[in-house]
């Protein structure tokens, strides 16, 4: 089923939104940018693309936070419905769409924790009492850690090879750049610069996602 187009003849590109996020012109980033612009312009057809591109991120963060597939599905659904309904509040010039979506995701997960804390307090008559403030703080801290890790895992998967392979060997196999160059049969200088640029890219992505709207 295709959603209705309200402005189906509008062009997908918009110069006004061209300053969105990174200067980098990789194909994937270009695709993200076009999607963001179409979404900001209110193209209903863009909603499917936005969902396909970022629902895994939202769902996985929700799944890690709630530890329940059903709750995660609910959170994901609420996030994208809220995003579409609230799209007028999204400014492509002030931040990336995934950061904005994750802002909504954080709030929906916080709502989930708040409901859970209420349940625990209701049950506390018979079990040890629960400090709602502590529950909330712990939930918030661990949520930020989860967001960071899932976002990094997502960005790592989007580095493309050989960068992804290089970073995985560096992070998870603890290989030095000399060992990586030898394993992947790449020049030392190439490995070094890929490591640096990839770390920068991970950093940029993390920073973009810590911006809440």
């Amino acid at each position: 089923m295709i959603l209705m187009h309200t402005k189906s003849n509008d062009t997908y590109r918009s110069d006004s939104a061209a300053s969105w996020a990174s200067r980098s012109k990789s194909v994937k980033e270009e695709a993200d940018r076009e999607l963001t612009e179409a979404f900001a312009l209110g193209h209903e057809s863009a909603m499917r693309g936005v969902y396909e591109r970022w629902s895994s991120l939202v769902y996985t963060i929700a799944l890690r936070s709630t530890r329940n597939a059903e709750d995660a599905a609910d959170v994901t659904q609420l996030v994208f419905i809220a995003a579409w309904k609230g799209r007028a509040g999204f400014d492509p010039n002030s931040g990336a769409l995934p950061a904005w979506l994750l802002g909504i995701c954080r709030r929906k997960i916080a709502d989930f924790y708040a409901a859970k804390a209420r349940v625990e307090i209701a049950a506390s008559e018979t079990v040890e009492s629960v400090d709602a403030e502590t529950v909330h703080q712990v939930a918030t801290d661990s949520m930020e850690t989860i967001v960071d890790r899932v976002v990094l895992a997502d960005e790592l998967a989007r580095l493309g090879d050989p960068q992804q392979k290089i970073m995985e060997l560096a992070f998870f196999n603890d290989l030095t750049h000399i060992q990586i160059a030898s394993v992947l049969d790449l020049p030392l200088g190439t490995v070094k610069s890929h490591i640096r640029r990839s770390l920068d890219r991970l950093k940029t992505r993390l920073e973009a996602n810590s911006v809440t709207h």
């Binding site: 895994s56 769902y59 890790r149 998967a157």
Partner: peptide, 14 residues
């Protein structure tokens, strides 16, 4: 932070 990623952090589709 990247080194703390485990299998469950890898994004999966809803």
């Amino acid at each position: 932070s990247a080194r703390s990623i485990d299998a469950e952090d890898r994004p999966i589709a809803p």
